[in-house]
Design a protein around this nucleic acid. Structure first.
Lengths: 168, 168
DNA sequence: GTCTATAATTTGATAGAC
DNA sequence: GTCTATCAAATTATAGAC
């Protein structure tokens, strides 16, 4: 993966997490990266492909980070909470898949499938950690909701409060 | 409030709940209502004003519905859960303020203030029902997250699972 | 791989007739 | 209060030079 592709994915991720799928343009990304819009199109022929690639990378990284925590002996629920917290504190923005899921109704099928994968993998890893399906859903829902609420209230302590019931 | 204004607000609410603030145009709304885009502009001079008006009406109606439940003797947490559930089941879409909050970073100040009001009023009514602030945040976060997760997984039972821990 | 140039369409918004 | 007509800008996307 070239530097330009990485920079494009980084910029698109930040934009989507701040303004949603319809909230950015190829020119925005190009300006962020320091190239022209046509160069972005060279790497990603269509906006849908770009967003799908961003979601794929985001999910892969996210699940990998969770698995790394679990491998170190962290409880799986706490692991998910930590990775969510890190994403909020580092970037001060919504979860990418949460931002896309919030407006999933009009989302292109390819993107929706990638976003769905994030939530299905979340449920799967939590179940592998011993949780029942309903409990796994509760954890993911609480974390997405806590992140969203902290975002709009512009108060990161809201994330702690919103996700505090998950801690054993 | 004229019929046209009501129809415009209805259409805009549905569009925003499905695709977010940037996911619709004046022409979309006009087509939904059966008028021309210039007529929409007559009632709402700018897109920001339209979205802010939609959020204001949504919050007012939502809180009113919750208060009506509480007045009938329903527990305040259960009241919030019921009104969220009704919004999901009736429209099959995200909470309007949740959809806007998810991409709040780039939102016009006027709109963000209205969305913020939804969450602050939520916390306020829950606290009046006897909950501590952290508990109130947990309830709102869980409900928004449960709605979002049910939305992307296209399974309304996910809302029940995601919000089930709130029931005493 | 990146650029310039451009096509085709859509966008938010306004002016003015009725 | 709604319409037609229009604007200026932005949008996704492509063609072809370098």
């Amino acid at each position: 993966m070239t530097d330009t592709v990485t920079a494009i994915l980084d910029a698109a991720e930040e934009r989507i997490r701040g303004a949603g799928y319809h909230g950015f343009s190829f020119r925005d990304i190009a300006a962020d990266v320091g190239v022209k819009a046509s160069s972005v199109h060279y790497h990603f022929p269509a906006k849908e492909k770009l967003a799908a690639a961003v979601a794929r990378r985001y999910t892969d990284r996210f699940v990998e980070a969770v698995n790394a925590q679990v491998a170190e002996g962290t409880d799986v629920v706490e692991a998910w909470r930590r990775v969510f917290r890190a994403a909020l504190q580092r970037d001060g923005r919504m979860c990418l898949c949460g931002a896309l899921a919030a407006t999933s109704h009009e989302l292109a099928e390819e993107i929706r499938a990638e976003v769905k994968r994030f939530f299905e993998l979340g449920i799967e890893t939590l179940r592998q950690g011993g949780l029942e399906r309903a409990a796994a859903i509760r954890v993911l829902a609480a974390l997405e909701g806590a992140m969203l609420t902290a975002n709009i209230l512009e108060d990161q302590s809201v994330f702690e409060a919103g996700s505090s019931a998950l801690v054993a």
